[in-house]
Design a protein around this nucleic acid. Structure first.
Length: 363
DNA sequence: AACTCGGGGCG
DNA sequence: CGCCCAGAGTT
């Protein structure tokens, strides 16, 4: 019995009932694939449902504001996916007259669609024999065929592409791709794979050689960098100030409180340098009320030490950079998980923006 | 080829 | 605490 047949059999008995497996609509399949990039199925599923509620069709998504798209994406991470999703929807409307592209190359011309997602859409929506290579597939193939070439190398990608191309079922590539990924996700798991009750164990090279735990081979490991974010919660009347993050850093296009980043921790006794304050306040005068809370926020490649300082101000900040918002406006803006956590904490403790600190003199 | 881009779940 | 998740884009 060949590998594809065994994967099919296993899949029939073990597949999950997932919403994007109940459709052939390329829009829905594309949406699910973008959401699921580097994201667990159970984490992405509610986002998929909410996106379809808000944007039932690709035309609805294309017509939305980016801010609305980012707000729906809030908390999911890798926000370039949301920006590219929105841009690609417009691409389909403008370059493809609203008709979702249906060949591997044209699908891949969409922003945010790379090799994996192109193959997934081509097979799931259009029955084209493009093998998907995601983390699950790399893991299964490396173990089953005993391939030690690093999966994050050019040689590795070529080798696995060739293997997958050789075993894909041309009569039903869509089900084959679903099956091989599902097998990697549920059976051939990263740690503690279920080898003892695996129907493919007797042919699995890694299992036969007791090298399951060594595969797949990956050479790059990410190192974590410490960053110190000093956020300024500047309150005046029932408003506070925010600004939008810009390119070439995390959380691009999301909103946050005015920020002073330092290369060491700060406190009320050891404040950031005055030049940093001047960049935000210019000639405006302010009064520092208190410090805290402190939040640590972990990203896969950064450890952010966030400290919040509470201030009052009696003038305006530069309106071309900063935006003055009330509570309702603030809650409508897309923000990082870190800002979300801060806002939730403040809302629990106080009435948030509705009760500015007692009016003390501003100097 | 190496980096960067989030957030969460798990042993 | 380290690893990984239905990867893609930039340098």
């Amino acid at each position: 019995m060949n590998v594809a047949r065994e994967l099919f059999n296993w899949y029939q008995d073990n597949k999950r009932d997932l919403p994007w497996r109940r459709t052939r609509d390329p829009y829905r399949i594309w949406l699910s694939e973008i959401i699921l990039q580097q994201t667990r199925v159970e984490q992405g599923r509610p986002y998929y449902e909410r996106f379809l509620q808000s944007f039932p069709t690709l035309a609805d998504l294309a017509a939305a504001d980016e801010q609305e798209v980012l707000k729906l994406w809030q908390g999911l991470g890798y926000y370039s996916r949301a920006r590219n999703l929105h841009a690609a929807a417009k691409q389909v409307m403008n370059e493809f007259q609203g008709q979702f592209p249906s060949t591997p190359d044209t699908i891949k011309s969409l922003k945010g669609v790379g090799d994996y997602t192109s193959a997934a859409i081509a097979s799931f929506a259009f029955d084209l024999p493009q093998p998907v290579l995601d983390g699950n597939v790399f893991r299964f193939l490396s173990r089953y065929f005993g391939v030690h070439t690093p999966i994050d190398s050019l040689a590795g990608r070529r080798a696995f592409q060739s293997i997958a191309q050789g075993i894909i079922d041309h009569r039903d590539p869509a089900t084959f791709n679903q099956a091989i990924m599902e097998f990697g996700a549920l059976q051939c798991k990263p740690v503690n794979p279920a080898c003892e009750q695996c129907p493919l164990a007797k042919e699995c090279i890694a299992f036969r050689n007791a090298k399951v735990s060594e595969l797949p081979v990956k050479k790059t490991k990410t190192k974590v960098r410490d960053r110190f974010f000093n956020y300024l919660w500047i309150r005046s009347d029932e408003h506070c100030w925010v600004n939008q993050r810009v390119a070439n850093d995390i959380w691009q296009n999301l909103y946050e409180l005015p920020l002073i980043e330092t290369d060491a921790p700060c406190s009320l006794k050891k404040l950031p340098e005055t030049t940093a304050w001047n960049r935000i306040f210019g000639e405006a005068t302010f009064r520092l009320k208190k410090a805290g809370p402190d939040l640590r926020h972990l990203l896969s490649h950064q450890k952010i030490h966030a400290r919040f300082f509470e201030l009052t101000i009696n003038t305006e900040l530069d309106a071309s950079v900063y935006r003055k918002v009330n509570q309702a406006e603030l809650l409508a803006l897309p923000v990082s998980r870190l800002m979300e956590l801060f806002m939730q904490g403040q809302m629990k403790k106080t009435l948030f923006l509705l009760t500015p600190p007692s009016s003390s003199k501003i100097k």
